[in-house]
Design a protein around this nucleic acid. Sequence first.
DNA 1: CGCTGTCAAGACGAA
DNA 2: TTCGTCTTGACAGCG
Length: 320
Amino acid sequence: MIVRFGYVAMSVHVKNASTSQTMTVAQFSKIPDREAAIRKLERIAESNLHNTLRLLYHNKAHDIHFYRFSSRLVPLIHHEEYTKDWDYITPIKDKLGELGEYVKAENMRVGFHPDHYTLLNSPRKAVLHNSIIVLQYHYDLLKNMGINPTHRCVIHVGGSYTHKNKAIERFKDQFPTIPEHLQKMIILENDDKVFTASDVLSICESLNIPMVFDIHHHRCNHDGEGLEELCPRIVKTWSESPLPIKMHVSSAKSEKVFRSHADSIKTEDIVPFLFIAKHYTDQLDVMIEAKWKDEALFRLMKNVKSVNGIRVIDEGTIEI
DNA sequence: CGCTGTCAAGACGAA
DNA sequence: TTCGTCTTGACAGCG
């Protein structure tokens, strides 16, 4: 099995390359001329995209073929009252095209993870409405990069709202009501507090959504399911996807703060992938979620060299 | 310049 | 019903 590792949104090596610069609501409101304020948002967006391209060059130089874009490339997009009539695409269209061309030319896998306020199972209409706006924004970015949006956005199921089973049913009821092109873009991840891998699988199987298995969340929150029963089902949810199976890996910060992400990935935490490789799939993309970002990836690659059964192919790829 | 506090989002549990 | 906490990277403001 070929495994490509990826990292999230920013590099600890490439300096002054934030892809998540923003403007506070207060700052925006202080600028008396709305047009001027909007121009400032556009300059920030352009800077975020420019830095994203710099990171892609960095990734190319280090054989990293998998990357998650920042979800804050365009600032204040969640604030409908400020940005409702703002055509945020036109000013950055060229830059988006340039990014997409590079991604395609270098055969990179890219995707998004809209933040955890994107909630498709909320009973509040306004929350669902905002979530759709945020998803549409991600869709617009991908479209204008010339990248097929199918299965590019990972989100969580949402809140439990006291009754987890009802919350699952509400997800199943509301998901088909959002625009179809946004449905196709979504993949679903198990979380560390409420919805276990089994919960997410039941949703994914009923709505035909690929499941992103997060190994660390599974350790935090599970129903005692073993990998041998989960994996065949997880793999099956990807059978109609144009993209390889995706999983997440991270290490616990400490025994006490177990849920939080550590700086880097402990070598022992990729052991489950040895099992997965043996039994279930031939291609896998694993997103590293660690504070040290690309440095965590580099260190993991250094450490796995000595693990039995793992062969290093390049700086971002192994064969198990 | 560097440090500390604040900002945003929505859910959720304590008071 | 209100308020503090969670989470994250970046902004804002202090000395």
